[in-house]
Design a protein around this nucleic acid. Structure first.
Lengths: 350, 350
DNA sequence: CTGAAAGCGCTAACAC
DNA sequence: GTGTTAGCGCTTTCAG
């Protein structure tokens, strides 16, 4: 910070009291002043290059017009569009945002939350929350506006904006089953995250509803939503020696990891194994064979979450849970299983 | 903000004066106090759940321990790793960062800069700067620590961390020429950005140095670094009817756009046209045929820039220009031109 | 070694 | 309609 023009300077220049200047500069209190004075003060202010000191005003009003946005990792591609959605809405409402990345590390998250609170954020938009987050729940209970995005604290009364995990998984499973797969392996996400948990539950429910069941040995739980974990889990599925014709992956990055493991084993997707993802990261359509996946509305979810946050900041009640719709994106990574294709081919010779 | 424990509360509890508490909580001033008092105050503070109010301290000390980071668009993939690099370094030094996206819009940038300054940022790390940025130059001249990243203001005395554009382009051109290309078209970036400008100049210099020259009609300037512009420019190159066997693109997104235009025209990369990119966005190796490109050290550049910013915040001088090294990434998008391949094939029949 | 007092720039009761 | 006054929570001189 450098020396700035203050209200006092303007007051001196305009020959009025600081409080008058303060009033003149705020559109709502300006109405109580005479129009000439307001006009004169405002022109003096712009002429002198006045810039309001929000730190001082924050101290006085006890609100910073700032929100903290907590992410797991901005370099994970579903977040940049979400961040843009959030930023756009907040900025238009006069709020600025601190963005921090937790890397899903509890200790790091605590430090970052603390840094945000010291800086007096008016609310926290949390997209990196673990299902079990007592610290965040405590803040919310104290009355700080808190809203989770993409994930949720479970159970709690913290409002959340999440995606329709049930519908998404159901689409993928149905698509696989309709293609003729009955032996479907799964790489599920970390169960400490609501997304990992909900998708896994949705898988079991959907399979059961279709009269299928997934043998325990055809299911591996990843320790994180990364390509490396996708590869590792895929390898483990093979090493267990169980037979399957498709792998349902809890997100796109796990699917990409699985894809590279398939290649490493000289297998082809979709010829040997079909694969599905989740999230529809950008550029996925460029990758051969094109990953069949579930599209979530990242930017829109960000906008909705930010709007709900604004309502909370204005003291309004917001719905406990907002579920964003998802859509299915069919690409090349799912075909009928090999035996079925051979059967079809023998019936309809080219 | 909600009611918080203040220094006054701790002072009352510990039976000392607020100023003593303030001193006890700051590691450096604590040395002037007796050890017992410090210990007692500190334990009282943690017991009461004290959290320092940085807004109040900012007002008093005139520094917010906050920096503003200005990006063109976080959803452009070279930025997330850079942001992580920046955040990591700043956070370790006790700084928090406001991140904003300008979309390369001057009006938007002005609003955002203003929002940052009102919030009393101690410095600005700018990765979205136009070559001509008088407003930013003015801030720097006033003494605000300003540093540009990836791009630079031209000419100015604002320190910058940029990539070695000359070396990068030279690598790409040399690679194409060595593969046998002599008719090289180019899609250059916006000349209002230092990256666009420097890469274009490097192209001309390199070609001239190799005794080649680029006909004016084989060069199209994109209005932005996007896939759409890449497609449009590629189409324009064809529509002009000039012959070429390779296109050098000023960044990866332009190259991807060109690639899809090639496909739309029933042409193949690299069989019909070789393509090069710049930046090495993540996941580029997943895309067939694999884009040959220049890797820039995104995260490292972010770290370096943040460290320089910290030095500036401490009042130290920093180098006017820091150039990060680049490396060449060879993938499948460059092969010898068709005629040369056919010639080679006829000499060495399989 | 610790206390007293002033003030960062702003806003909001309360006067007149 | 406008001025007066107090104070947000903290740091930092200056006393003692």
């Amino acid at each position: 910070m450098r020396k700035q023009v203050t209200l006092k300077d303007i007051a001196a220049a305009a020959g009025v009291h600081v409080s008058t200047v303060s009033r003149a500069l705020d559109p709502v209190t300006a109405t109580t002043l005479s129009d000439e004075v307001v006009a004169q003060i405002r022109s003096a202010a712009t002429a002198m290059g006045y810039r309001r000191n929000r730190i001082a005003s924050s101290l006085r009003t006890q609100q910073s017009k700032t929100v903290g946005v907590v992410l797991p990792d901005i370099s994970n591609w579903i977040f940049p569009p979400m961040v843009r959605g959030i930023e756009k809405v907040l900025e238009e409402a006069g709020y600025a945002a601190f963005f921090v990345n937790t890397d899903n590390l509890v200790a790091r998250e605590e430090r970052l939350l603390s840094a945000l609170l010291e800086r007096g954020v008016d609310g926290i938009l949390h997209a990196a929350v673990l299902r079990d987050s007592p610290a965040l729940a405590a803040l919310a209970a104290e009355g700080l506006p808190v809203l989770t995005l993409n994930r949720r604290v479970d159970p709690s009364r913290i409002p959340c904006v999440i995606n329709d995990e049930n519908a998404g998984i159901q689409m993928m499973v149905t698509h696989l089953v309709e293609a003729g797969h009955s032996q479907i392996a799964a790489i599920s996400g970390p169960q400490a995250l609501s997304t990992g948990m909900m998708r896994q539950q949705a898988l079991l429910t959907t399979l059961a509803g279709m009269g299928l069941r997934q043998p325990a040995c055809s299911h591996v739980e990843a320790n994180g939503f990364s390509e490396e974990e996708g590869s590792r889990c895929c390898a483990e599925l093979f090493d267990r020696g169980n037979h399957f014709t498709a792998i349902l992956c809890a997100n796109d990055r796990l699917a990409l990891g699985a894809l590279s493991e398939l290649r490493a084993r000289g297998l082809s997707c979709p010829d040997d194994v079909s694969l599905t993802g989740y999230n529809d990261m950008p550029y996925l359509d460029w990758i051969a064979p094109g990953l069949t996946t579930v599209r979530i509305e990242q930017a829109e979810a960000g906008r909705v979450a930010a709007e709900l946050m604004l309502q909370m900041l204005n003291g309004a009640e917001v719905p406990q849970e907002t579920v964003m719709p998802v859509t299915m994106i069919r690409r090349g990574s799912v075909t009928p299983p090999r035996r079925l294709r051979e059967l079809q081919a023998s019936r309809n010779p080219v």
